[in-house]
């Protein structure tokens, strides 16, 4: 579904990503782990179109995303849960949710997609008319994921959803991602610093270091391999 091949990004003279290749199949979760500065955020921002790739390609269902604008990429079926959640705090919960699918022409289905998010995350339904900034961290994360789902994406990119969340809430959200991938046949790319929780839900795991993929293993094996874990993930 999502195919990244030989993706290379250079900022000035510095290589932020070198020859990164991987793919995420329909209905599966792939996690990208790595320390701060490893290139994780550059990777999502390049897939989103916010950063221009120097070389390589990103494709969804065979259609090339590389070189297109962020708004065009979203319209091709990529949903975003940006770093720091990217909510518009001044707007209400309902407005934030509606914004997710506002580019779509099918008005009836747009409304249905928003209603589905309220069913998926009932706490949001109770706070419809409140400003997004007033929500708790967990609710904000639900809203950010819900807003991405409102565009009925086929690929979902999440940039560090664990940030600032309590362990219990994080576990719930991770479980929600597993069922979303399975039920909606989503291809989910989960960028994480919190390796433990990401490995518990992902099928495949990549470790980025200094912009290169240094490990590419089934998540279960990476989680079980103490030597690898110590070397790259520090636990």
């Amino acid at each position: 579904m999502l195919e990244v091949s030989e993706l290379t990004v250079r900022y000035g003279g510095v290589r932020a990503l070198s020859d990164v290749s991987f793919s995420v199949a329909e209905g599966s979760i792939t996690t990208v782990l790595g320390a701060n500065g490893a290139g994780k955020t550059t990777l999502v921002r390049t897939i989103s179109g916010l950063v221009k790739a120097t070389r390589g390609s990103v494709r969804v269902d065979g259609a090339t995303l590389t070189g297109r604008s962020p708004e065009a990429i979203t319209r091709m079926g990529v949903g975003h849960v940006p770093e720091g959640r990217g909510l518009i705090g001044e707007l209400t919960v309902d407005e934030n949710l509606r914004l997710g699918g506002l580019w779509r022409r099918d008005v009836t289905d747009r409304r249905r997609a928003v209603d589905e998010v309220y069913e998926l995350f009932p706490p949001l339904a109770a706070r419809r008319t409140l400003p997004a900034a007033s929500l708790s961290g967990g609710e904000q994360q639900m809203l950010s994921i819900g807003r991405a789902l409102a565009s009925r994406p086929r690929v979902l990119l999440l940039d560090e959803p664990s940030l600032g969340l309590a362990a219990v809430i994080l576990a719930q959200i991770m479980q929600r991602l597993v069922s979303l991938a399975a039920e909606r046949r989503l291809a989910i790319l989960l960028i994480e610093q919190n390796a433990r929780s990401a490995l518990s839900v992902a099928g495949e795991a990549l470790v980025l270091s200094l912009g290169s993929v240094v490990v590419r293993e089934p998540a279960e094996r990476l989680a079980g391999d103490e030597a690898l874990r110590h070397a790259y993930l520090g636990f």
Binding site: P70, T74, R75, G86, E90, L91, L99, G100, L102
Partner: peptide
């Protein structure tokens, strides 16, 4: 809807683009 899009674009242009808003 167009007013909502305009507010989103004014508050946070980058996020607005990620939401498919031109």
């Amino acid at each position: 809807d167009i007013g909502l899009r305009m507010r989103a674009a004014a508050f946070n242009p980058e996020v607005a683009r990620l939401l498919g808003i031109r």
